[in-house]
């Protein structure tokens, strides 16, 4: 008869505080049939309130021009786009771990559309090392969860591998061709013609000058005839894709049907607050980039020497 009492006690202590608070905070919302919905409350880790009062007027930009491109160069250092998943302490702890990992391995800058080669230590592979080369289709995740997918066609069969960027089993990441594409997402290559995603596994890396701007490849892909694995038309309507060649007589039909069938926000592009919540404001970005630029300056000379030593070995 003693046991259940103990369990009850433990249970009551184990109920996290925020659950109780959340139920209390939602009580001010009108409940009932025809009540007025005052919006669903976000969790308490939502980090958008400024710590200090802003000193520069709102008409001027806070981030200098040197650090503007950092958000494209290191997208994994920004907190997540969903405000529910943001946490200030988590980001600080993860950034320290990520920089520690970057001391041990050279993680180069790369974008969606650039060609990479990754070597991983694998106990089941021959020689306990496996190397894969392919085009980077997609980048996702934030912090230590950030990952990227590589795609290539080997022996007439498409292969995609998703790597965690900060996985300790990764031995090296080589950039073989550094370039951008018109889209942030190239997963439509699955239903494109195979010539756009075939690369020889022993491809030689392209030499490029240090500090040169990253070129954009304005190629437009030819798609295979229907059926496709996924309806790319609908996605085209929501977030516009530029890298697909237009097919005659098909686009308008699907465009109309996608509007007709679903509850769709026609004016999503004008929703300013939705945009604000998905973005991370300048004031939150600036301390991150300041920290990273200091790290870059301290380790730039060491990494240069290491890269030159690699090139000489070949």
């Amino acid at each position: 008869m003693v046991l259940p009492r103990v369990i009850k006690l433990i249970h009551s202590y184990n109920v996290p505080l925020y659950c109780q608070l959340r139920s209390a905070s939602r009580s001010w919302i009108y409940k009932g049939g025809k009540g007025i919905d005052k919006g669903k409350g976000f969790s308490f880790t939502y980090t958008s309130t400024p710590d200090d009062k802003r000193q520069i007027p709102l008409s001027q930009k806070l981030i200098p021009e040197e650090l503007e491109s950092m958000r494209l160069k290191y997208p994994e250092f920004l907190p997540s786009t969903k405000p529910e998943h943001r946490n200030k302490i988590k980001t600080v702890l993860e950034h320290n771990d990520m920089l520690q990992r970057r001391n041990n391995i050279d993680i180069p800058e790369f974008y969606v559309g650039s060609i990479l080669a990754v070597t991983v230590s694998d106990p089941n592979a021959a020689g306990k090392i496996s190397r894969f080369l392919g085009i980077c289709i997609f980048r996702e995740g934030t912090g230590l969860n950030s990952c990227f997918t590589l795609r290539n066609i080997v022996d007439r069969e498409g292969i995609e591998i998703r790597y965690d960027l900060y996985n300790p089993t990764i031995r090296s990441i080589e950039v073989i061709k550094l370039e951008k594409r018109l889209d942030q997402d190239l997963r439509y290559l699955r239903d494109a013609e195979p010539q756009y995603s075939t690369f020889p596994l022993d491809m030689e890396p392209e030499l490029r000058k240090e500090g040169a701007p990253v070129p954009v490849n304005p190629i437009k892909v030819k798609m295979l005839p229907l059926p496709w694995s996924i309806d790319w038309f609908k996605i085209r309507y929501q977030h516009q894709t530029y890298g697909i060649e237009k097919m005659r007589g098909v686009w308008e039909y699907y465009y109309k049907r996608s509007v007709h069938n679903r509850h769709h926000n026609e004016y999503e592009q004008f929703d300013l607050m939705k945009e604000y919540r998905s973005h991370i404001p300048e004031d939150a970005q600036l301390p991150i980039w300041n920290k990273l630029s200091d790290y870059e300056k301290s380790t730039s000379e060491i990494k240069k020497k290491a890269r030159r030593a690699k090139m000489i070995k070949r």
Binding site: G39, P50, Q184, H279
Partner: peptide
């Protein structure tokens, strides 16, 4: 609708933070 979860169009712009008088800590009404 079998669309994949797409990358949001986040962080394309540089947006200034809203001042603390404006309440943002909630979903859309």
């Amino acid at each position: 609708n079998n669309a994949l979860p797409r990358p949001s169009t986040a962080n394309k712009k540089l947006i200034p933070i809203l001042p603390p008088e404006v309440k943002v800590k909630r979903g859309p009404i």
